[in-house]
């Protein structure tokens, strides 16, 4: 079953075609890697799927809802973690979780139980009352992820979730991602790290707004006859005409 369907999805800003007629599907429960160089159009494509940006052309469905006409329905069943840390720094850890739980319509008792459950799973209970501004980056990102999946969405969109954190924190973060996928939540993730691409069930590689390759990491390596995803990426991204922005 496909939980994300994109058909000829396009976004232009003036003359600039940020996303150029991309089509793909994501299956339920998959970890789908969305790769590409800076400025290739990953974030724009993801924002369209989340209902944050309206496509110029083409159509998309997320969790069975049209991303243009039913964007509010889409929003109710997805989680999103933006590239830039977007939780409230002047709220405490539990207050941020409570806020997003409340917005997605969870009940008070449910929220309280869930906060403890999630913080225990993260080993983060001691920081429950810490002001978010006081957390180190790695923890902030784990918290942002927790907030994004707090309401048990069908799909979670992660935009470069591990940017700027150390390898140990990245590994822990991917454990969280696997854990989430095991619970049946589809994970749509963009990344720059090719070792992370290896962890995905399938990956797509965007070059200049188009999807130039889409398959499992294993199949892609075979196709390009290389030993790792990094080589695949270099071969494809090397063809890019667009300047790194």
């Amino acid at each position: 079953m496909n939980v994300i369907i994109a058909k000829n999805l396009t976004k232009t800003f003036g003359d600039f075609m940020a996303v150029d007629h991309i089509s793909f599907e994501v299956k339920k429960g998959e970890i789908f890697g969305f790769l590409g160089a800076n400025g290739a159009g990953k974030t724009t494509a993801m924002r369209m799927l989340c209902g944050l940006s309206k496509p110029t052309f083409g159509m998309g469905q997320v969790a069975g809802f049209d991303i243009v006409k039913q964007s509010e329905n889409v929003k109710a069943c997805i989680g999103y973690m933006s590239q830039r840390f977007a939780l409230y720094e002047d709220l405490k850890v539990w207050e941020n979780l409570r806020l997003y739980g409340g917005i997605y319509g969870l009940r008070n008792a449910q929220i309280n139980r869930k906060i403890d459950e999630m913080l225990n799973r993260l080993g983060f209970q001691a920081e429950k009352n810490t002001m978010v501004s006081a957390l180190p980056l790695g923890w902030k990102q784990k918290l942002a992820f927790t907030a994004a999946i707090f309401h048990d969405p069908k799909i979670v969109f992660l935009d470069e979730p591990t940017g700027g954190v150390d390898p140990a924190a990245r590994r822990q973060f991917w454990e969280l991602i696997y854990d989430t996928a095991d619970r049946g939540i589809t994970v749509f993730v963009t990344t720059h790290y090719m070792d992370e691409a290896e962890y995905c069930n399938r990956v797509s590689i965007m070059v200049d707004g188009r999807i130039d390759a889409l398959d499992s990491p294993k199949a892609l390596k075979e196709k390009f006859q290389v030993s790792n995803m990094e080589e695949v990426f270099f071969q494809l991204a090397g063809k890019a005409k667009r300047k790194d922005s």
Binding site: N73, K75, A76, I78, S82, R84, A86, I103
Partner: peptide
């Protein structure tokens, strides 16, 4: 400016 509005906009608020 702080970017927090994006997290809000992606909810069904």
């Amino acid at each position: 400016e702080r970017g927090t509005i994006e997290q809000m906009n992606v909810t069904s608020v």
